[in-house]
Amino acid sequence: MKRDSTVYVVLFTFFVCAFFVALLAVANELTKDRVEANRRFAAQSAVLDALGIGYAARTDAETIYAERLSVSGEGSDRYYSTAIDGERHLAALVSGPGLWGTIEIMLAMDMDSSRLDGIQVLSQNETPGLGGRIDEQWFKRQFRGELIGPEGISITSGAEAAGTGDADPENSRLDGITGASRTSQAMEAIVNSGIAKLRKLPGGVQ
């Protein structure tokens, strides 16, 4: 058969494609469980980290998650609840527009004492090195235990340069990121809308 005849081209292309696709299917099948476990761990650890519940190893995270958290609601209304020292804590996914794209965070708060437990940034497309710093520890750490004021919390821009954050959990005020005022404002809006969302949930104490 000639190498440039239509029949040869069609058959050759078909069999080569089938061969490589079959190999990829095998590779996908072999790693499927691992990829799924990674995905599950990422989702569960985000909730645990936001609530400030510690876990020693990856395998612990799954047990602790199953024991301590109850999941209610479906889709975007899904929320996670747990009791820590007799107080009711809720966590939910909140998203809103950032400077370049949607910012998605896991927000957790103590419903009884009206304090934030913490946040975890799940996805963001902010400028690396500027707005992208919302994913850094010093920024996220400020939210832990922060008292929620009558107006929610405020994130002030330009106040910090050293990257240390606001240390006082009683002032309902956090340091924004220098050079990323718009991202800081966006985070403030997202967190406050998240607080409102959590308070509206069944059992969310005003």
Partner: peptide, 30 residues
């Protein structure tokens, strides 16, 4: 490889190896 589909075949083989890299990263370096 027939000359007519040479480049299509190149892209196919290249994509195969790149997807393998992607699968390995997703499974072992999430």
């Amino acid at each position: 490889i027939p000359r007519k589909v040479r480049m299509i075949m190149q892209v196919l083989v290249i994509s195969f190896y790149v997807i393998i890299v992607d699968i390995i990263l997703r499974a072992y370096l999430p």
